[in-house]
């Protein structure tokens, strides 16, 4: 009996597939979530553009691009961490710490290369520490990185005495990162593109990426299928640390000095908001780099729009917090979690 119904279902399948409209196929490729982000982005651009046509200037586009580049790289790596079911609240603090370190090492060594390398090394250590605390201390990722969020910030202030350090504005490497361009596109944007592309390729085409999705989707199943979960957790947090260091170096270049807190404060919230808005599930296992990048752009345009429309910057913070809640509410509804009270 079962087999007859099944064969009938199979016979109907091709017909159904043929009748699928082209729109449907486009939707399958882009994804519903990404499409809604694109629509939201379009609406936002239309509204801001109609209020102030300066928005469309190439210079403003570049401004948006360079502004989102720092948040962007962090959102990309936040996506990676969230896909395995984790969270890294310490990325902003780690970026501040590495910013200071890169400038101070540059000042004493007179070499941008050494400064950058040491900063990347410190980034590895911050990520490694997070991973070790989470794995071997059995500490919840939120708590562990909330602790290091405070810790790394404190460390940054300690080594810098809470002041901006060094002056990198005359060094050609830092100047190139901050204001240089390749093929007319600012270096900072290129850095975001490279980081995002690498992460995207990693997630999509390698067994590592597939295991990342598997882990976030079902950790038990992944362990029983022979995936070394610990190694992946540590790996993801170390990657987060390295990318935080890249963000820190970008900050140093942009401001011309090592900044312990200014510029990096709030990056953790922005990166988490972008990832969640981009469709990365807080439970892990779901989400993609293109989604996150679209969300980063959306947030960047929103921020830029509010600024050129002269909206009080405190409102921007409120809008940001609000967006994170909205993003997660949408996620929960899509998972079918109903709006009943907790048990």
């Amino acid at each position: 009996m079962t087999s007859t119904t099944d064969t009938r279902a199979e016979a109907e399948q091709p017909q159904e597939r043929r009748s699928r409209s082209r729109l449907r196929r486009v939707l399958d490729v882009v994804g519903v979530q990404n499409l809604s982000l694109l629509i939201a982005l379009g609406i936002l651009v239309a509204i801001i553009g109609s209020k102030n046509s300066n928005f469309f200037f190439v210079s403003n586009m570049k401004t948006i691009g360079t502004t989102v580049s720092v948040v962007g790289v962090l959102a990309v790596v936040q996506t990676l961490v969230m896909l395995i079911g984790g969270l890294d609240i310490s990325v902003g603090s780690a970026a501040g710490l590495t910013s200071v370190v890169s400038a101070m090492v540059f000042t004493s060594s007179h070499s941008a290369g050494v400064g950058i390398l040491v900063a990347l090394g410190v980034g590895v250590l911050t990520g490694l520490f997070n991973g070790v605390v989470i794995i071997y201390g059995r500490v919840n990722a939120v708590i562990a990185t909330l602790a290091t969020y405070a810790g790394y910030r404190g460390l940054a202030n300690l080594v810098s005495n809470g002041r901006a350090q060094g002056y990198t504005g005359t060094d050609s490497t830092f100047v190139f990162i901050a204001r240089g361009a390749i093929a007319g596109i600012p270096t900072l944007i290129w850095m975001l593109v490279v980081v995002a592309l690498l992460a995207h390729l990693l997630l999509r085409y390698t067994d590592i990426g597939r295991n990342v999705y598997a882990m976030g989707g079902n950790a038990t199943a992944s362990r029983l299928a022979g995936i070394n979960l610990n190694r992946y957790v540590i790996g993801c947090y170390v990657t987060a640390g390295v990318v935080a260091a890249i963000a820190g170096i970008m900050l140093t270049a942009r401001t011309g000095s090592g900044q312990p807190t200014s510029g990096s404060q709030g990056l953790e919230l922005q990166s988490i908001t972008a990832a969640a808005l981009g469709g990365v599930s807080l439970q892990g296992g779901k989400g993609s780099i293109p989604g996150t990048i679209l969300a980063v752009l959306l947030l960047g345009v929103l921020q830029n729009g509010l600024t050129i429309l002269n909206v009080n910057s405190f409102w921007q913070d409120i809008a940001q917090g609000f967006l994170l809640v909205i993003a997660v509410v949408i996620q929960q509804r899509r998972r079918g979690v109903r709006a009943i009270g907790l048990p």
Partner: peptide
């Protein structure tokens, strides 16, 4: 304990052999 419920049949079947069918980590 076994399935990645939100992933495809292909993803689920290949999970335990991914490393075997990858070269330099490219599946």
């Amino acid at each position: 304990q076994a399935l990645l419920m939100h992933r495809s049949v292909r993803d689920n079947i290949s999970l335990a052999v991914l490393s075997r069918i990858s070269k330099a980590h490219i599946v």
